[in-house]
Nucleic acid binder design. Structure first.
Lengths: 187, 187
DNA sequence: TCTACAATAGACCGACCAGTCTAATAATAA
DNA sequence: TTATTATTAGACTGGTCGGTCTATTGTAGA
């Protein structure tokens, strides 16, 4: 593994744990076992390092949990149940929330570029979910609502459900929350 | 206004804007126009200052938006519509999210005491909302669901709705999100 | 082999961090 | 008045911050 890869991995963990402000370059370098000169060779600043981490680590990871390829034969309700179940099995997500949501929330007041990058991914995820909901409406599985607004609501409320205090969040708790979403959207 | 009060006010703003890690004592002192010795006279550390701010500023402010006294004659649906409307009119909340949610989310990985204090307030708010929903069920205004779970879902998804990127959040957007909640819970 | 550039390595820098210290002043009680 | 305590005031400290600098090493082409 190259030093660049080690840096991106370590940055993901440090920023997820301590936030952007709380993540120090020293801690990232120590955890990655990479010298400082190497980091500033690959990235011009801490911000650029984090931008790279979002593009090459955070977004791919989030898609693993919140994105699913649509097939003509798919059933929308099945897809959603599958996604929620998969998310609920990811202990990291359940305990500490969606890393994209967490970073976007923190950076909202600190940096427009990082915030926008996160927001674009939110749009990508909702666009995908919108297609799934449209399919569900065609199949008469899902209530007749504006699909895009509904998709946004599902993601934003899932993120809310994942952002409870770590000591009081659990797989069961999350599934209870998403049950409300499913009860709402199913016909 | 005493220096202690000035400090708590400034701490609320700085922590809301920059998060706990990003809020420096120097910035707080400058904004409050209070010397350092005065701060460390009233509070033994930055953490104690923030704990005081949560108890004496953040929690009261959050209750203004998310808490409502219950009266026997109240209609649950009216109360919720009123609360959502009031929240939507608070530009600060709509743009930058619920400060309680934001702090709890950040501190989840950093400090148990602050996280717990925030979580306790989440419990307080849900307990209050649970009573309102119970009343709504009695009046046959609201679907038959576990009131506590429903109350938690309403608050957590409202917080999610408020935690969108500031450049893409608006009063209208928030009301669209909460419309889904209302459509779900109303009979 | 020589050349040129990419990457590694870490000492070093000024700025800023939370927190300490001592001194001065205001308020209160005897 | 005097003694005592609460509060204000800010200079100062050791450590950490993001970032710079120079030197060295690895690597690929001529």
């Amino acid at each position: 593994m190259t030093n660049r890869d080690k840096l991106l991995d370590a940055t993901f963990i440090e920023v997820y744990k301590h936030g952007y402000s709380g993540a120090s370059t020293a801690a990232i370098l120590k955890s990655a076992k990479v010298p400082k000169g190497s980091m500033y060779h690959h990235f011009s600043s801490k911000k650029e390092l984090v931008l790279g981490m979002v593009k090459e680590r955070l977004i791919p990871k989030v898609r693993e949990s919140f994105y699913i390829e649509l097939h003509e034969t798919s059933r929308a309700v099945d897809i959603l149940n599958y996604l929620f179940k998969k998310i609920s099995k990811n202990e990291m997500l359940v305990k500490h929330g969606c890393p994209l949501h967490k970073l976007m929330f923190e950076m909202g007041t600190l940096d427009d570029e990082i915030t926008e990058l996160c927001h674009n991914e939110f749009v990508f995820l909702t666009d995908n979910l919108t297609l799934i909901l449209d399919l569900g409406k065609q199949n008469a599985e899902i209530i007749e609502k504006d699909s895009k607004s509904l998709a946004e609501f599902i993601i934003i409320s899932s993120w809310g459900a994942l952002s409870r205090s770590p000591n009081h969040s659990s797989k069961e708790q999350f599934l209870k929350d998403t049950k409300h979403i499913m009860d709402y959207i199913k016909i």
